[in-house]
Amino acid sequence: MNAKVIVVTSGKGGVGKTTTTANIGAGLAKLGEKVVVIDVDVGLRNLDVVMGLESRVVFDLIDVLEGKCRMRQALIRDKRVETLYLLPASQTKDKDALDADKMRTVVRELIEEEGFDRILIDSPAGIESGFKTAAAPAEGALVVVNPEVSSVRDADRIIGLLEAQQVREIRLVINRLRPKMVASGNMLSEADILEILGVKPIGIVPEDEGILVSTNVGEPAVLGSSKAGQAFMATARRLRGEDVPFMKLEEDRGFLAALRRLFGGA
């Protein structure tokens, strides 16, 4: 993707926006980009805990805007991946402390004065002001979608809104795909989702207990060896324009699966 400023969004909550932001951010930084991930969920911040940086939060995005600190003081540098930074949301302020213009100002400063290569904005759930604020400075979007009815419906709505906001590059991250269920015909496949939403996936991430384990300890999965971690890393590479084939979700192979296909079960 050419977009420097990318909003990570989904409409529906709980589909993995924050996990996606943390992992793709860490992945891009691992590949050498200077990356900042911004939490825009004012009042319900979570990117700090998912990344394991919660104990180092002193100032936040709103403090910068209110002139209580300089940008440099609010940015938290990750110690595991160089060139990865977090700009946390405020946990106590009202969401009205932030708006589209302020967000654009912050992003401009991060690019022009701090020299970031990439800015990932973790949007709050919903389609209201929080989302609109998060999307305002974005040139691109990662729409996180789970292969289930409400998430796909909300993703469609969000894609419409992003197009209306002139966000040029919109890509899907299909999260929590269960290969076995896809094979048995009880879960939408990536092809089904592409057909329904008309937006290309840039990442397909399998359901993986490893994600919970990595968030338990606050370490991005891309730094480990879990399947989901590898899928996020591959997504980061594709985002940079590398031609990385999608991971074979091999559970639909083998004799039993062939039998199942033969008898119409898969």
């Binding site: 796909v152 419906r153 709505r157 048995s184 879960m187 939408l188 057909e195 079960g265």
Partner: peptide, 25 residues
């Protein structure tokens, strides 16, 4: 898994989604 049911549930889901998205759009 649901061999006895005939239609795979994702096909039902696709039909429902196509309809609901057409109305939504």
């Amino acid at each position: 898994m649901f061999w006895g049911r005939g239609k795979r549930t994702k096909e039902t889901l696709k039909d429902r989604l196509e309809l609901v998205l057409a109305y939504d759009r």
